[in-house]
Design a protein around this nucleic acid. Structure first.
Length: 317
DNA sequence: AACGCGACCTGCGAGC
DNA sequence: TGCTCGCAGGTCGCGT
């Protein structure tokens, strides 16, 4: 459920709590959350204990912490190692004091070196286990580093995130490159928006919101999409994400680094997602009645207004 | 290259 | 009340 804004809120919250601290011990309560760490829980814990967290950076929905002093990794093995986190659908990273009872879906606990006024534990909580933690190498990148609003962009990127494109809020995001690659594809617009290798950070909910805002249908072929249309939908995605970021930012300095997936979205009013059978707000404002429609696309729900996001007639857009 | 689909998971609500 | 079923959805990998 977390899309880009939620992950960025976590990153910003986390960085002030963990940067510079050393991981003193690791409890793996559910090894399924380490599925992507091929060498297993013991290797995971063994590499983390004694390591120091240098930063928290993000690319798309991937979040990682570059590490120093990883005990079991030889110095010449790679430019660096990072603790990677993906929140999947329901993942949370929480800072907690030791006295706080374990969360129902607590999967991994990291204890950190003491720091004045800061919680001792970083907990990974995940109900549905689509997310997870794992260690990854940092590899050189020639495109200016991870981006993703990282506070200290490094010329390195987590190997497992190297295939992820920049997101629309990234200062280095290039619309021209995006548009060129978009036009080269023979696919539908929503599929392209959800392709993290083309543009990152957009999930099912924000894709629907951006398409609605731009008055474009999810199946609009990308290979004939006009530049102005592509720009409109990208700008719409940017606006939706910035709104969400602003809303999430209000709780930055609370004790929690909270990524309750649901709270990110449903506290806000959505214009498209989840509004099946309800009036299209734009049509209503124009004095028309049009009911939002839900359809299956890519095995998931897509919400559109049949009036302002029309389907093709006779295959022509 | 594109695309569809299954796998990975748990919880919740609807319907019977 | 208790069961099943559909749905929620990010990512990866495989088959076509």
């Amino acid at each position: 459920m977390p899309e880009l804004p939620e992950v960025e809120v976590v990153r910003r919250g986390l960085v002030s709590w963990v940067r510079g601290r050393t991981i003193t011990s690791v409890d793996v309560l559910d090894p399924r959350s380490l599925r992507r760490h091929a060498l297993g829980p013991e290797d995971f814990a063994g590499n983390l204990e004694g390591a120091r967290v240098l930063d928290v950076v993000r690319r798309g929905k991937f979040l990682w912490m570059p590490l120093a002093d990883t005990p079991a990794v030889s110095a010449d093995a790679a430019p660096g190692v990072a603790l990677m986190a993906h929140l999947g659908m329901s993942g949370q990273l929480l800072m907690q004091d030791p006295g706080v009872p374990d969360e129902k879906h607590l999967k991994v606990r990291l204890r950190l070196s003491p720091a004045a006024g800061m919680p001792e534990q970083l907990r990974f909580v995940d109900q549905r286990i689509f997310g997870g933690l794992f260690l990854t190498s940092l590899i050189p990148t020639d495109d200016g580093g991870p981006g993703g609003l990282a506070e200290t962009p490094l010329p390195l990127i987590a190997e497992e995130a190297a295939h992820i494109a920049r997101d629309p809020l990234d200062p280095c995001f290039s619309f021209d490159d995006f548009y060129r690659r978009l036009r080269a594809r023979k696919t539908g617009l929503k599929r392209a928006l959800l392709d993290q290798g083309l543009v990152s950070g957009i999930g099912n909910i924000y894709a629907d919101e951006a398409l609605w805002k731009a008055r474009l249908h999810y199946a609009r072929p990308t290979d004939t999409l006009r530049r102005a249309d592509a720009l409109r939908v990208l700008d719409a995605a940017r606006e939706v994400m910035l709104d969400a970021l602003a809303a999430g930012g209000t709780s930055f300095d609370s004790l929690y680094v909270n990524v309750n997936g649901a709270s990110g979205y449903f506290d806000r009013s959505l214009n498209a997602y989840g509004r099946e059978g309800l009036e299209c707000k734009r049509c209503a404002a124009a004095g028309r009645v049009s009911l939002m429609k839900r359809e299956q696309f890519m095995n998931r729900s897509s919400y559109t207004c049949p009036v302002c996001q029309p389907k093709p007639r006779n295959g022509r857009w």
